[in-house]
Design a protein around this nucleic acid. Sequence first.
DNA 1: GCTAGATAGTTTCCAATAGATACCAAGGAG
DNA 2: CTCCTTGGTATCTATTGGAAACTATCTAGC
Lengths: 125, 125
Amino acid sequence: MTVMQQAYNVYEDRCPTRLVLDRLADKWALLILDRLEGGPVRFNHIRRDIKGISQKVLAQTLRKLERDGLISRTIFPTVPVTVEYALMPLGRTLTDTVSALAHWAETNMDAIFTAQRAYDEAHSV
Amino acid sequence: MTVMQQAYNVYEDRCPTRLVLDRLADKWALLILDRLEGGPVRFNHIRRDIKGISQKVLAQTLRKLERDGLISRTIFPTVPVTVEYALMPLGRTLTDTVSALAHWAETNMDAIFTAQRAYDEAHSV
DNA sequence: GCTAGATAGTTTCCAATAGATACCAAGGAG
DNA sequence: CTCCTTGGTATCTATTGGAAACTATCTAGC
């Protein structure tokens, strides 16, 4: 089923679906959602697991996902303070699709790299 | 099936799957792939359909998708010249997942906007 | 002939974003 | 007293994104 057959047209500017898709189409958000699938995780734990993400971007992305109601943020008054992030029911309905995208990437990366080499060779000469 | 159970770990920096996921996690790329599902489309046709995309970003994104082997670019020596973009078989294997993401966005956007209002109210006071 | 319009881009400039790094407060361990 | 942890924020710079103008080629209209 394509999007055009729906009540909303995702190709339209100002389409609310676009606002949601813009948010979802973010590599860090997808990786974080996938990482949370196994259960609640702390801030620095995510930071250490997802190599290459900066503290600033991790904090920003977690805030956005929390605002969207996809994940929850729970503070435990330990010393030092512990903050746990977990998937909300709404976020859980998304993880199948996110995993499917990650799985597609892994399955097809060799074909993509082959295509890239062919393209570069054809366009360098 | 989570990514962690695969041979590659998508959370690792330098993981080839991450390179592919980074490319896919782009709102314009996803919209273009979805738009091409119905058959070949010309440059300016895509530009007019996908409201808000600039010529520069459309050209860049199409080039990347072509380099990845997801879409084809065919030039017809008409006057003025016609350039048609179409899904390659590799790109076609991806459209189900892309459509699923767009469909999820549309189904759940009301829940997300409700969550956003609740978050903003709780954090503005 | 001159101008307008279509094709598919490239170029230029500025604003917004991403990344790296440093810093903060509150303690516990040594 | 100093270093380590927690979960961030502040600052600065590099990269990217978006808006607009410019390119080239040919057709149609006046």
